[in-house]
């Protein structure tokens, strides 16, 4: 807070920005654990989750005033950006990802490796990212189909079809069909 005040007095015209920076730092601090968790659910591994959270927050932070002026809930905005960024990163790296399906167990902490052993978690990892994002938004975020469509910028019909494909392949993988 003092830092914010100092910054404010130092920069007359930049006062608003200093306030915004302090505000953004607070936002990052408060939302970080939840965003990492959500990133973990989206990407399927903690390292990619950290990368995803960092890069999206950097982008959002560099235009914090503009993001706030849009009037949306910034947290919802960041979560949408994470889902979309994850999907587009995957498109770029499609080839590597198809091969890199097996986690490098050496770097994973013990409690995470147990999660890695969950059949459902493994089945989720095999889903293409958009299907996975739809599942995460539905079961992790508890969003409705319309909200998912809005968040991912796709139609309700696409949400439905992606969701049913995802559920079908999860069932197949788990031997539940």
């Amino acid at each position: 807070m003092t830092a914010v005040l100092q910054l404010e007095s130092a920069a007359e015209s930049g006062g608003g920005r200093a306030e915004a920076v302090g505000d953004f730092a607070e936002f990052v601090r408060v939302s970080m654990p939840g965003l990492l968790r959500y990133g973990h659910a989206l990407t399927g591994n903690p390292h990619d989750a950290a990368d995803l959270v960092q890069s999206v927050l950097e982008k959002v932070g560099s235009r914090w005033a503009a993001v706030q002026s849009k009037g949306d809930d910034p947290l919802a905005y960041v979560r949408r950006a994470m889902a979309n960024t994850h999907i587009s990163i995957w498109r770029r790296r499609r080839r590597e990802n198809l091969v890199a399906d097996i986690p490098d167990s050496g770097a994973v902490a013990p409690e995470l490796s147990r999660l890695e052993n969950e059949p459902l978690w493994q089945a989720l990892r095999s889903l293409p990212p958009r299907q996975r994002a739809v599942v995460v938004l539905r079961y992790y975020e508890n969003l409705s189909e319309a909200e998912i469509a809005d968040a991912l910028g796709i139609s309700c019909g696409t949400v439905k079809s992606q969701s049913s494909k995802a559920m079908a392949s999860l069932r197949t993988r788990l031997g539940k069909d």
């Binding site: 730092a25 654990p33 990492l36 968790r37 989750a49 994973v108 902490a109």
Partner: peptide, 14 residues
């Protein structure tokens, strides 16, 4: 699902 092993620091983001 909590991520403990890899942290992103607020400072790094700022």
């Amino acid at each position: 699902l909590d991520v403990h092993s890899v942290a992103v620091s607020t400072e790094a983001v700022l």
